[in-house]
């Protein structure tokens, strides 16, 4: 940064008028940025949400409630929650391990490993489902053995679980990695030299500094599990009330021209996305309280 300070290209405040004009100009830039950001956010994200909510509540609160409390809807919701419950913790642990490894160490093959972890993002969901069909389906080498032992993977819960794991594998890791990279390793090194154990180091030094990113990662991962459609659609078998997750249930409703019920179910997932809001509020309150206590 010394370079920057001595750089001749930076204009020095030459006169009083310039100085007075500056806040205004700075504010102008600020307003322009705000306008761009808000209109982009509303255009790309806000309007689709508005469509979903408008359609969901088109026929009033009564039919909204009814759509959500329908037997198949509840079944689909509980299956989706169960899958999330089975997926998110595993991918969180993996994400922490992978981000630590890739963020704190440099080793041969590191770039390749990062790219590998990104890979599920690039795999089309349809293909992600197909992979597990090829691996565990009746026509696969494993197929006859699984059938002989009456183990159902594809078209049952394990298949849905596996493909959800695959699809959401990168989220926690990828959310943490840029942060860990930008933080460097100085603090951890210092702690280690002062005699902190590996666990203490992680728990007391690193974790507090990455909790926001971790929270984001978990929320993203969770949201993606609940919302995953393509991959799960391939391995689910679509058995009504049994292997239909919430997104598949929405598809069924939509195909039955029950548009209002379909969007009602979709709005549940949209609200789940907005849960970030609650989390952040709570966490921030906690944060400020802790800060004021220690002060």
């Amino acid at each position: 940064m010394t370079e920057l300070a001595s750089s001749p290209s930076i204009p020095r405040p030459a006169s009083l008028t310039w100085n007075l004009a500056k806040p205004l100009r700075a504010n102008l830039g600020r307003y322009i940025l705000l306008a761009i950001a808000i209109s982009y956010g509303v255009l790309i994200l806000g309007l689709p949400l508005a469509v979903v909510l408008l359609e969901a509540f088109k026929k009033g609160l009564g039919s909204y409630r009814e759509a959500l409390l329908a037997r198949d809807a509840l079944g689909a919701m509980s299956l989706s929650l169960l899958v999330a419950f089975l997926v998110v913790p595993l991918n969180t642990v993996f994400g922490l391990a992978a981000a630590w490894l890739l963020g704190k160490f440099r080793f041969r093959g590191r770039n390749l490993l990062i790219t590998l972890i990104d890979l599920p993002l690039a795999v089309s969901p349809v293909v992600a489902g197909l992979m597990f069909v090829l691996l565990y389906g009746a026509q696969s080498p494993l197929g006859p053995w699984l059938a002989a032992h009456d183990l159902k993977i594809i078209f049952a819960l394990p298949g849905i679980w596996l493909s959800s794991l695959f699809v959401t594998l990168p989220y926690v890791a990828r959310e943490l990695l840029p942060l860990l990279e930008s933080q460097g390793t100085e603090l951890e090194e210092a702690a280690a030299l002062l005699g902190a154990s590996g666990w203490q180091n992680f728990w007391h030094i690193s974790l507090p500094r990455m909790k926001w990113a971790l929270l984001h990662g978990i929320i993203l991962c969770n949201a993606r599990v609940l919302g995953e459609f393509g991959a799960v659609s391939v391995v689910s078998g679509h058995i009504r009330g049994k292997t239909n997750t919430l997104p598949l249930h929405i598809e069924i409703l939509y195909n039955e021209y029950q548009f209002t019920a379909a969007f009602a179910a979709a709005s549940v997932l949209a609200f789940l996305a907005l849960i970030t809001l609650v989390f952040k509020r709570v966490a921030q309150k906690h944060h400020t309280q802790a800060a004021s206590l220690s002060a």
Partner: peptide
């Protein structure tokens, strides 16, 4: 987070 949670 909407695009993540809302089924595609």
């Amino acid at each position: 987070d909407l695009p993540m949670a809302l089924p595609t």
